[in-house]
Amino acid sequence: MSVKERDPLTGHLTTGHEWNGITELNTRVPRAVWFFIIVTHIWAVVYWVLMPAWPVVTTYTKGLLGYDQQDKVEQRVMAANAARAVWTDQIATLPAEEIRADPALMAHVTRTAPTLFGDNCAGCHGQKADGGPGFPSLVDEAWLWGGDADTIMETLRVGINSPHPDSRFAQMLAFGESGILSRDQIRVVVDYVQSLSGLETEASQERLDEGAVIFEENCASCHGEDAKGLQDLGAPNLTDASWIYGSDDQTMFTTINAGRQGWMPAWEDRLTVADRMMLTLYIQDMAHEAKDAD
């Protein structure tokens, strides 16, 4: 059907077509539409002139502003570095005690370190730095390598058993798997080690003495005669209450049978010296707080 009709409501003519009852008015495009089309097009053209925009075979128009997102972010990063350098330079060079003595510097540490720790360390050591199976607690004051700032800084720089060329190296030998100790001997020394830290054990004194001998012969070279650990080797103290992997029979059997070699990543390429110093101060502080809370 094709009868032009006038719509009584709007007073506009239809185009004269009808599709299964649907008709169309021939209303003009409203002025506002033209207006906004023009505004957006003008804006676009201006933007093209100012910014990189149109490709031309093997190159593109660079724009009058010479803006480039990569240059821009590099400038931003450098400007931010410069702005922070006021205090990061100090943190990166001063000894830990001096930083700690300066409340202004410590304010930066308190603001910054939790995020750094959360994004990089919490995955292993936990949000509260209290560790978990396989990852040592950093707040129990039982340090593998030492809790002074320089030692922690070095641990953070090179990592432990990490692919870093200067990495600290620490290995708990696989006494069972390499055939040095029999299964029985391992069970005996497990009892002995458990007794060292005052854990309950049902073993007889005789058995513990036997364990002491095995320990003396195999373990003391790393963990020390007194089993208090040797920080030069990263060998843990076995007489305290803190455990990396655990002190139950089964875990300890696995430790001695199959050995351990925890891997702590190196942060030299990922975190700056100042970052690492802030983390050092932060975990030292957390350790103190945890101790005070006890």
């Binding site: 994004d119 990089n120 919490a122 995955g123 292993c124 978990g132 396989g134 990490s162 692919p163 925890g262 891997w263 702590m264 990543p265 990922r270």
Partner: peptide, 27 residues
């Protein structure tokens, strides 16, 4: 989850394994 473009060597192999086995165990 976080961007992974540079996650290589950020964690240990063991961490990655345990994280994939059960992320909520570690996080």
């Amino acid at each position: 989850g976080p961007d992974l473009a540079r996650v290589g060597e950020k964690y240990s192999d063991d961490w990655q394994v345990r994280h994939l086995v059960d992320p909520r165990d570690l996080v």
